[in-house]
Nucleic acid binder design. Structure first.
Length: 263
DNA sequence: AGTACCACCTGACGGC
DNA sequence: TGCCGTCAGGTGGTAC
């Protein structure tokens, strides 16, 4: 579920495995996933270069290339990375295979081909071009408050809107709202000062803990909603039945007792 | 400015 | 067993 904590985990994985090796070859198996770059340009941009450092904004992972430009990876709903030694076979659904001079390879894998492979001038230029909001994890309370004040509509759709703030998706927005005790349909610009601060604290807490646990659902605390986020699930706090509702075309889970709807 | 809906992909699951 | 509809964490475009 590549939301911000998952992408941060992937970023750390790539940084720990794949920096400073010369790229000898690439194999692009899913050309339809290219974003604003041709197959030829991608090949020319990567081959002979090496990965020098990584960056992340929201759900986007960027990797600086020694010869200029940045590789952009977006993981969609199902993307992941797998570093392979020269004997291991690439997993099924590998969309891009990056071969290093020593024979090792980095496989970028998408079960569904919902994602992006791009070559961009810089993370900043890409974020500006796409109109992405500030990264959710680095967002100060004051800025969060100012953003919410100008946002109409539900707080859940605001949290999930990448143009508003970048990095939060359907699952973690449910978790953040649950921990803040706020109903997902609450109006974003009508939250009280106190509720806004509580929501901000929950946002920081959820993202920090999820990153620490490498976004592995099984390692997340039992007290979290997302451990029970399934039909028939019960609230980890009060034991009541969780409710499923549709918001912005997505399935939201909430505890109707712990997240009361303001009138 | 928001929301609703469809499209893009593939696999899992329940019902018949 | 097999087929079919539905659903799943992503985003982007279009039409209200």
């Amino acid at each position: 579920m590549p939301e911000l904590p998952d992408v941060e985990t992937l970023r750390r994985y790539l940084a720990a495995t794949s920096l400073h090796s010369r790229i000898a070859r690439i194999d692009l198996k899913a050309p339809r996933m290219l974003y604003a770059v041709s197959r030829r340009e991608l090949r020319a941009g990567l081959t002979g270069s090496s990965f020098e450092r990584t960056a992340r904004h929201g759900k986007n992972l960027f990797v600086a290339l020694s010869q200029g430009n940045w590789l952009l990876l977006h993981f969609g709903m199902t993307g992941r990375l797998a570093y392979l030694d020269d004997a291991e076979r690439p997993p099924p659904h590998t969309g891009l295979l990056i071969g290093f001079a020593n024979g090792d390879r980095l496989a970028c894998v998408w079960l569904r081909k919902l994602g992006k492979i791009g070559l961009v001038e810089s993370p900043r230029a890409f974020c500006r071009e796409r109109g992405l909001g500030p990264d959710a994890y680095a967002l100060p309370l004051t800025e969060f408050r100012d953003l919410l004040a100008e946002r109409r509509g539900s707080v859940k759709s605001a949290l999930m809107d990448q143009h508003f703030i970048a990095g939060i998706g359907n699952v973690y927005s449910d978790e953040i709202l649950f921990q803040a005790g706020i109903h997902p349909r609450a109006s974003a610009n009508r939250l009280s000062r106190r509720e806004t601060a509580t929501l901000h604290r929950a946002l920081r807490h959820v993202l920090r803990i999820a990153i620490e646990r490498r976004a592995d659902p099984e390692r997340l605390p039992d007290t979290w909603l997302l451990r029970r986020r399934t039909p028939g699930g019960r609230c980890p706090r009060c034991g009541g039945a969780l409710r499923r509702i549709a918001i912005a075309g997505r399935t939201a889970y909430l505890c109707p007792k712990c997240q009361r709807r303001a009138r």
